Computed example of a mutant assay.
Amino acid sequence: MARSRTSAKAAGTRFESLIAQTLDTYLAGNIERRARTGAQDKGDISGVLLKGTRRVVVECKDVAKMNISGWLREAQAERENDGAEIGVVVAKKRGTSDPLQQYVHMTLADFIDLVALAQ
Rank of each mutant, 00 (worst) to 15 (best):
G95F: 04
M106R: 04
A91R: 07
D110G: 07
Y103N: 15
H105A: 11
K93H: 05
A91L: 03
Q101K: 14
M106N: 04
T96Y: 12
N81Y: 02
V115G: 05
Q101M: 11
L114E: 10
V89Y: 04
V90E: 07
D110F: 07
L108K: 04
E80Q: 14
R94E: 13
R94D: 12
G87C: 01
I112Q: 13
G87W: 00
I86T: 03
K92G: 00
Q102K: 04
P99V: 14
G87L: 00
A84L: 02
A84G: 05
L114Q: 10
P99I: 13
V89I: 12
D98H: 03
N81I: 00
I112Y: 08
I112A: 10
D110M: 05
Q102S: 09
K93E: 03
P99H: 13
E80Y: 09
D113C: 04
G95A: 06
L108C: 07
L108D: 07
E80S: 11
T107S: 15
D110I: 01
S97V: 14
I112C: 09
P99S: 15
G87F: 00
D110E: 11
H105Q: 11
Y103F: 15
L114G: 10
F111A: 11
L114N: 10
T107N: 11
P99C: 14
N81K: 02
E85V: 03
K93N: 07
E78F: 01
V104Y: 09
A116P: 00
V104C: 14
G83C: 07
V104S: 10
V104E: 08
V89G: 03
A109Y: 11
I112D: 11
N81P: 05
R94G: 09
V104F: 09
A91V: 01
L114H: 12
A109S: 13
M106P: 05
V115Q: 12
K92C: 02
S97L: 14
S97W: 13
T107P: 11
L100K: 15
A116R: 14
R94P: 02
N81C: 02
K93T: 02
T96K: 06
I86K: 03
S97H: 13
K92L: 06
V115F: 12
N81A: 05
V89T: 07
R79L: 03
D113S: 12
Q102N: 13
Q101H: 09
D82C: 01
D110R: 04
V88T: 10
N81S: 06
F111P: 02
Y103H: 14
Q102P: 06
E78M: 01
